[in-house]
Design a binder for these strands. Sequence first.
RNA 1: GGUCCCUUCGUCUAUCGGUUAGGACACAUGGUUUUCAUCCAUGAAAGAGGGGUUCGAUUCCCCUAGGGACCGCCA
Length: 359
Amino acid sequence: MKSKKKRAKQKKLPYIYNRKWRDKSETDTPKEIQPVIRFKSKIEGKSVLKDLVQGNIEIENNTIEDFVILRADGSPTYNLSASVDDHLMGMTHIIRGDDHKINTFKQIQIYDAMNWKVPSFAHIPLIHTIEGKKLSKRDNASTLDDYSKIGIMPIALRNYLLRLGWSYKDKEIFDLDESIKYFNLEGIGKSPSKLDISRIYSINEHYIKNIDENDLFNFLITYCDTFHEKITDLAQKKIKNSLHFLKNKAKTLEDIYKNSKFLINDRVQIEKEDKKLLDETAIKIIKLFSNEIIKLTNFTRETLEPIINDLIKNNNTNFKGVGQPLRICLTGSKFGPGIYDILSALGKEEVSRRLSQIR
RNA sequence: GGUCCCUUCGUCUAUCGGUUAGGACACAUGGUUUUCAUCCAUGAAAGAGGGGUUCGAUUCCCCUAGGGACCGCCA
C-alpha cells in the first residue's frame, strides 16, 4: 500500500484506498499479518453536513475512503474514539476547528451505523498567522503561556479571542458576563482570521486602565512571581499605593513591572549612557534640590512644584534640565513615571537618601 | 493533483438590494504634556476581476483569479 501511495503522489493522481478486502469474508484473512479494521464507508450518493457555521456542505460519498477504526494492535483510532466518547458523554453540540470537517463525514457514518443520535456540528475557521497559514504550536506566539510571559492578562486575551472571527454590532469590549450573554454561533464569520498582536496589546492596555485596581494588582503580583521575581510585602505595599500612576504608561504587566522597579529595588543602578547626562550643572541642581527639600514638612506636588520652578528659573534651564537628572538619580532610567509621582511615591527620606549618593 | 471551504480599508469587522460603505486596532499629521507614554482632534485607507438577475447590487446567481483546510494504523 505504501508503494501505491507513493506512486500516486508522484503521478499527482488522487490516492484512495482500493477497498481490496471490503467484501471478503473473515476466513479469507491471511494468517501471517495483523490486520487493521476499516469502516465500510458509503460508496454511492452524497452526504450533506448541516453545519451551524458553514451552512450546508455537500460531498460525494465515494471521496471518503474505508477509514481505519481499529489499528493492527487493536486500539481504536481518533474517529472511532471521538464518536464513541462524544456519544457516551451525551454531547449535543460539537464546536471545533475547520480542519475537522472531513472527519465529520466519517464520524456521522459511525453514529448512523450505531443508530446513535447525530449531534449538531459547528466548524469554526482556523486562526492564521500574519502570513496566512494555520497557526501551529511551532509558532512562537501560539500558546497561552507565550502571552502570559509578555504580560497579557487572561481577561484581555479572552476578549481578543472572542472578537477574532466573531462580532456583535460595533462592540469591542466584552466583560465575562457580556461575552456569555452575547456570544452566538451566528456571529461567527466563515473565513479564517489573522492574529494581530498590536490589537492584543491594545485590548490589554484597555483592561489595565479600566479594571478594578485590586484585580490589576493581583494579576501583576502573580505575573511578577511567575516570570520575574518574588515581590516582598514591603514592595507590594509600595506598588499598590502607586498603581494608579504606574498603570498609566503601561500596555502590559511587564510595562508596569518595569515602571515599578524603582520601588522594588532600593539600589539605583544608572546606565553608562545616562550617567553622561549627569554633568556639573545637573549635579549642582541635584544638590540644590536636596538642600531645599530638607526644610519641607509636607512632601507633595504642591510643596515640590515651587522648588522645581525656582530651580528652573535660577539656573536658566527648562523642566527637562531639572526633571531628567532627578529621574535618573532616583530611578536609574530616563524613562518612567512622572517626576512628581516618583517623588511622592518614594517619600522625603528615601529621596534624600538616594540623592545623597550622587556625586 | 483530488475533495471541500473562503474573499469589504494593512488587520479584526459592520452592512442582512437603495449608506457620503460605518467602527476598532495599526499608521500619518496637529494639539495637550515633564522624559517615555497617555489623552484629544484630524487624515489617509476597502467591496479581487468579469458576466448576469434587478429600476438599483458590496449584498442574489454563474465563471475566473487568489487564498486556505483536509487527503495517516496523529489527534
